[in-house]
Design a protein around this nucleic acid. Structure first.
Length: 463
DNA sequence: CCCAACCGAGGATCTTTGAT
DNA sequence: ATCAAAGATCCTCGGTTGGG
């Protein structure tokens, strides 16, 4: 841990609008201007929360969702409803003052990911424009009150179907739920709201539960990552002989690798969120990383969606900026796939696909987000910009043209070795070299108009 | 084909500001 | 005080992933 050197830093103004903010941590012994790594981030029980001193400093300036027990949630809801009842008796209507989740109210803090500022507040009342949201929030509060009182958990879907006419759509239901989280200052799990179990995990990992039972993740097709609420029942992780954690973008690759027994052969714990990860997967990964201290890598396609998903894992999402209960993993390393890996594997650049207008926009937004992009490792920026400039994307599926077991038996083991050997190399210099070699290879390819088959890629050992 | 998660874009609507 | 333009905010829609 490092101290100080920040005493003169300007403080966040509380409006949530400061882009170049730095926090004065005073006596706090974690300098949050440095990347908080696993070695300087104290281990905590339960969810991998921020260190208390950092949490205390941030909570004055940002909305930080906390785990609340049922009693506190009920008391908060009762308080809000009492206040509304008094307001109605006075002839005024129902109203909620909710911290604005608008993107302009979101700042980026390196140690925690994206954060929701305390500055903006939206008042939802019975006016024509706000009526729908006000009704929606009331319905969510009603369902949550009942669920917490009875000690049962409900899904977003349950909330939607109970008041279908009010909500109209699932997206709107979700927005109302997130507003209630901001209103009460807690996470979704504290409201006894659970999501569909979306993520999966496989590998030599055992989950030790609070009731003494042990759940193994080494089964053939892996194990569903439990909801945030049920994750509380996991007391500790036993990672056995695992050497690293591998985050896989999509289910197809996860399924393929697990079928090929990749996790056992490479001694790794594989996690997937099936595309954009849900909250449970992000909480699970954060906790796994914090408690096992294993190196952690991400396998994402070199396309705008892959970049977006990578950023959601590493920095969090704007939509859930209020909930930083272990959602961002800023220490995540992008293992691949990179375009030069395809060339290395003997795949021609002519096989790359065009980036669609939607993806173009997504990429320019990622790169244009100064709040976030200045924290990208340089080699990420180079590769993001490269895709944007070239207008071409790739995916792991291209590698299947080399045979179905090529990825798991030849390509990924070679890629892991390559990256491990490069880990000590100056990454900045590496990125520049990569940039130059990419330009050269593509220029050659364009000149010749044919596929370029270089490389130092190892010959297949099997056929 | 519909569902469940997530995301961003953009049109619609409301509010604020400034000119007259 | 009125009106138009600009800015802010809300919310629907459509995109990704995968499952049943």
């Amino acid at each position: 841990m490092t101290t100080g050197g920040r005493s003169g830093a300007s403080r966040v103004d509380g409006t949530g609008s400061s882009e170049e903010h730095q926090l004065d941590l005073g006596s706090c012994d974690v300098d949050i201007d440095d990347t908080i790594t696993l070695s300087n981030w104290p281990l905590l029980t339960g969810f991998a929360k921020l260190p208390p001193c950092v949490h205390n400093e941030l909570k004055d300036h940002f909305i930080i969702a906390q785990e609340l027990d049922g009693k506190t949630v009920l008391a908060a809801i009762n308080g809000i409803m009492d206040s509304n009842a008094a307001s109605i008796l006075k002839g005024e209507g129902v109203l909620y003052k909710v911290p604005s989740r608008d993107k302009k109210n979101i700042a980026f803090e390196k140690s925690a990911g994206l954060l929701l500022g305390r500055g903006g507040t939206i008042t939802y009342d019975l006016g024509t424009k706000k009526l729908k949201k006000t009704t929606g929030i009331t319905c969510v509060l009603s369902v949550v009150h009942e669920a917490v009182s009875k000690g049962v958990t409900v899904t977003v879907r349950d909330v939607f179907y109970r008041n279908r006419d009010v909500f109209g759509s699932k997206q709107f239901t979700e927005a109302c739920i997130y507003d209630v989280c901001c209103l009460l200052g807690c996470d979704k799990a504290s409201l006894n709201l659970v999501s569909f179990e979306k993520g999966s995990v496989i590998g030599p990992l055992k989950l030790k539960l609070t009731n003494g039972e042990v759940a193994s993740c080494s089964e053939l097709s892996g194990r569903r990552i439990p909801s945030e609420k049920r994750l509380l029942e996991v007391e500790s992780f036993d990672c056995g002989d695992a050497e690293f954690i591998l985050v896989v973008e999509k289910q197809s690759l996860f399924h393929h690798l697990s079928q090929m027994d990749f996790h056992n052969k490479q001694r790794c714990i594989m996690v997937t969120g099936n595309g954009v990860p849900d909250i449970a997967t992000r909480v699970f990964l954060k906790r796994l990383v914090s408690e096992t201290k294993l190196p952690h890598y991400a396998l994402m396609d070199p396309d705008p969606d892959g970049f977006m998903i990578l950023c959601v894992y590493a920095y969090g999402s704007a939509n859930l900026a209020f909930d930083i209960s272990g959602l961002a993993v800023p220490t995540l390393r992008w293992l691949g796939l990179w375009v030069e890996d395809l060339i290395w594997a003997g795949i021609g650049v002519t096989q790359l696909k065009d980036v669609t207008p939607r993806e173009e926009k997504m990429l320019s937004n990622l790169l244009g987000n100064k709040n976030l992009s200045r924290f990208f490792p340089r080699h990420w920026s180079v590769r993001f910009q490269d895709i944007a400039l070239r207008g071409k994307k790739a995916s792991f599926e291209i590698l299947h043209s080399k045979g179905f077991d090529f990825v798991s038996k030849v390509f990924l083991p070679a890629l892991l070795n390559k990256r491990r050997n490069n880990e000590t190399v100056d990454r900045e210099r590496n990125a520049v070299t990569v940039e130059k070699s990419l330009r050269n290879s593509f220029q050659k390819t364009n000149r010749k108009g044919v596929t370029k088959n270089d490389t130092d890629f190892p010959a297949r050992s099997d056929t």
